[in-house]
Every structure is written in structure tokens, then in C-alpha cells.
Design a protein around this nucleic acid. Structure first.
Lengths: 194, 194
DNA sequence: CCGCTATTAGCACTTGGTACTAATATCAGT
DNA sequence: ACTGATATTAGTACCAAGTGCTAATAGCGG
């Protein structure tokens, strides 16, 4: 079931995007063309080779692992972080994040972005959320980009607590505000909150 | 400044841990021994080769990225519902829902289960969350089953509002409490909250 | 000096490629 | 049907960063 070059290349792009760990040989089998064709396709699409792809994924994680929580556990992409001070992440709302009915983003995605940013900002091996108050001010729709800004507003080191305020905006309009009481988890005490 | 084999191997472990992207050749220069020695060291310490190390980092990231939040309309399975009154759902915590580090479920999954149950309980075409207060009382780990019970505790029909309380338990122990102020969205007014 | 561990060297082989050249296939237009 | 252009396939040499293996050498303790 061969298709045109154009179609194959589109599919190829997608395929590699979905699974960057695929080799040219596997792709050649998948699309029923020679390995060389796959290579030519990659060149034209400027898709790097397997190892480079893997490396990129890995480097991204590793570099961003700043200190506290790995970025790979964050919902949304962190674009700026000052540990224990403030952090910013962006999250692009896609069709899978909204109610089919009215295209409005489901609340837990806004929460997830804000909450994981609150976790990331903590300058600790691991932090957990203890309490939280949320306000969903305006609906967010598919296609919009949510910018979440987190600020540490209070610290209680003796209690292993910190308070983080997250304000999420779309086009400078505030859509969500959340405050999070965070627990700094030390090595031995794995005992509070989820 | 050569040291003993033992010391070198300890340092080697650390060095690779800090920067998994280092090659044997670079390490050989760093420790002023031959590449073969580095290889022997890696064998003895069972540290995989560069590419495998990178791959591991990448796989970790990639899998986590794919995870995030499920697409399903309702997080968890609703096992009982009385519209406008109460509802129960269960959610099995799987490895993909927890922090790798300590196996504790990430907060947004508890929130997602509770919030989507609060949405479901509303006897309306569609409801949105306006405000919410959460308490994460105990950590939940992979393998546990969360039972969330939602109750409508107050109704304000004139304001299109209802208040829902959700209590989540694992083996009869309360792990999470959330209260949700819900907005009943009528056909024309698609205007509040996310 | 023997024995032992540690270290170094060298070679063949592996994966998943790049870079390049050359042959063939396919199709469109005249 | 023939020409050209594009697309595809084949093949070679080469590379990085290894593994696996054998063998030689160094250093030291008794």
C-alpha cells in the first residue's frame, strides 16, 4: 500500500515523533521502502539520526533536572525557574484536554500545571502538596496557551512548609489562581500528603 | 595523581552519575588511565555504555511525557451515582500515576478523580468548577485503590451554583478531601470557569 | 623471584548511522 | 516512444563508541 513521497514523509515525521527510538531499518520495514529512502527522507525533513534524537530527549531532561524535581514530571513546559522564588511554565491546551461539548479545558489540567509547577519550584528532593485553594476564573479553550507563574509567598522552614501562589493567564488575562501549601519531604519522613 | 582502583571506581561512579553523557575516552583522560581500564571498571561496577545510559535517561523522560493525564472524560470509574445527590468512583493508582522517586501518587490525579466526579454528579448537561479547596491528607502509592465519595452539600439554583464535597479513601482511611463550587452551565451562558 | 592483581594493548566485530557514487525505476510531457 | 526529471535502491568506505576476547606488561608483597 505505497503512497507518494509526500505522504510517506508526513507519516514518517509523525511516526518518529511518536516514537523517537525507532531505527531507520524499522522504519524501512514499516513503510516498505529501502533504508536509503528513509535516510533521504530524514535528510529532506532534517530529522536527525536515532542517537541524536535520543540524546536530545535525554539532554532536555538532564539539563532541566536543575536540582529539585525532574522536569519530566511537570505538566507543561517550564520556561524559567528560580528555585524557592518563582517559576513560569507554559501549557498548550489541545483537543484532548477539553470537554468535547464546549471545548473548555477540564479543570484538572489547569490544576496539574499549577500544582506541578508548585512542586518544581520547591528547592527540595521532593515536595508534596498538603492543601490547596483554587479559583477557576475564566474558561480556557483548545488552542490557547496557558502561562502559569508561581511565586513562593511564605516559608516556614521549621515546619517544612512553604506556600506557593500560582497565577495562570491566557493572553494576559487571568484564568486561574491557586495557592498551594507545600510540604518539603526529607529523606526519612515520607509521611504527608499526595 | 593516581589513586587506588577502589578510589578511582568510586569517583568514576560519581562522575558518570553527574554526567551520563561522558565517553570512556573522556573518562580515561579524566582519571589518567587507559580506555581499557575504564571499560574494566564499568564492567565491575556494571555501568552500561554511554549510549545505553543516554537511552535510559531518554526513555524515562519520554514515558513520563506521554503519561501526564488520561484523555478519558471521567478520571476513575463511576460505580454509583444519584444525580444531584451523591456519587462514588474508584481509581486504581498505577505506576504511571506516581512520582518515580517515592512511588507517591501525584496530586493532580487525586484532584482529577474528585473533580470529574463533582462534574459528573451535577444534573446538568455540563458543569464547570469555579472554586475548590483541597486537602491531601495521606500519600497514596501505586497499587492502591482510591474510592472517592462525592456529596452535594449545598445548592443555589438562583445562582446556578452547587457545592460538592468529595472524600477519597484508601482502605477506609481518608487520604484526600476536596470541596468544589460548581457552576451549572446553561445553553446560552458559556461564560465562567474552566 | 614467584604470584597476584592491575593495567594496558591490540584485534575482530557490532550498531546505527553519514557521505558519497551509481544504477535503476517511475512517471510526465512532448 | 524518447527525454528528463524525480524517486528509489544499491553499494562502498568510513565513523563513534562501544563489546568480547587474548595477551602482554607493570607493580608490589611476601
Amino acid at each position: 500500500m505505497k503512497r507518494t513521497k509526500r505522504e510517506r514523509q508526513t507519516a514518517l515525521k509523525e511516526s518518529i515523533n511518536e516514537n523517537p527510538f525507532v531505527t531507520d531499518e524499522e522504519l524501512s520495514a514499516e513503510f516498505d521502502v529501502s533504508v536509503q529512502t528513509i535516510r533521504l527522507d530524514r535528510m529532506e525533513l532534517s530529522i536527525p539520526e536515532l542517537r541524536e534524537r535520543i540524546k536530545h530527549v535525554a539532554v532536555r531532561t538532564f539539563e532541566d533536572e536543575v536540582k529539585s524535581l525532574p522536569i519530566d514530571e511537570v505538566i507543561g513546559e517550564i520556561i524559567d525557574i528560580e528555585l524557592d522564588e518563582k517559576a513560569i511554565s507554559i501549557f498548550d491546551v489541545k483537543p484532548e484536554h477539553v470537554f468535547q461539548r464546549n471545548q473548555i479545558a477540564r479543570g484538572h489540567h489547569l490544576f496539574a500545571q499549577a500544582n506541578s509547577l508548585a512542586v518544581a519550584i520547591m528547592n527540595e528532593e521532593l515536595a508534596l502538596t498538603v492543601k490547596s485553594e483554587l479559583q477557576f476564573l475564566r474558561p480556557v479553550k483548545a488552542g490557547q496557551r496557558i502561562v502559569a507563574k508561581a511565586t513562593v509567598i511564605d516559608r516556614q522552614p521549621e515546619k517544612n512548609r512553604a506556600f506557593v501562589k500560582v497565577v495562570s493567564t491566557v493572553d494576559q488575562v487571568t484564568v486561574f489562581i491557586g495557592t498551594f501549601e507545600m510540604y518539603r519531604m526529607t529523606e526519612q519522613s515520607e509521611g504527608e500528603a499526595g
